[in-house]
Amino acid sequence: MREVVLTPKEQPPYGLIAECISCDVFAGRSIEEIEALPVYYGNRQGKLGDFFDVAGEPADKAGELRIIIEGDVTKTRWIGRDMSAGEIVIKGSADMYVGAWMSGGRIVVEGDVGTFSGMQMRGGELHVKGSAGDYLGCSYRGEWRGMSGGRIVVEGNAGAEVGQNLNGGRIFVRGSVDTFAGVRMKKGLLVVGSAIDRVGAQMTGGAIVVLNGVQRLLPGFDPAGDVENPEIEGESFEGVFRKYTGDHAERNARGVLYIKV
């Protein structure tokens, strides 16, 4: 695998839209061409090279390329948007929309990611070693089909509405999640450490697993017995789980919620 290294310079306070940071866009371009890729902030347009030192060896195919961002880019948005292959490693934290609409490849973030990360992901993997903001793996406003494939792993915590409108794919959050995890979920698997309340609100399908307890359940969830070492959506879990179906506020809801006892 070849590597292109982006070393961040000063980030603009307005927020930097850098959807060009993707293996698909870098593939087949020289270092000079990569430096000249457009980025946007406020009402201005600039070049990627204005905000990053670009070095390394570019590749012809996205799948043969690894992009390394050396440090925090907490004002940079849309990293890895629409990416289909290759790998991005962010050695720090990034802003909103990391890996939105991604369909393949892998993004590893050593710090945190902002709100709306993994939005409507279709494939590939987003691995966050820190924490994620609200709306992890969500859908864009008004779109009822959210993330449909791929895998998101967050080792820390995540904010509200994780996996909103989830329509396939898998999300794992080791730590705690804020309110409304799996809201309006239809398909797929969402596994979280602990949750506060309103887990699976308005869900009609798919499965949610809570490993370390939830403070309060919605009235739309009915108990369906205990299960031991269950296999859920192709993943095995150890221990005894209390099974619920719901959210029966919805007509014909077929969602399943497992809470570890």
Binding site: R198, A201, P219, G220, H248, A249, E250
Partner: peptide, 18 residues
């Protein structure tokens, strides 16, 4: 939110456990 969910469950023919 919980109250609305409970109302919906009843309207949609479900039974309240609480």
């Amino acid at each position: 939110y919980e109250l609305i969910s409970a109302l919906r469950k009843v309207v949609n023919g479900g039974e309240l456990r609480e």
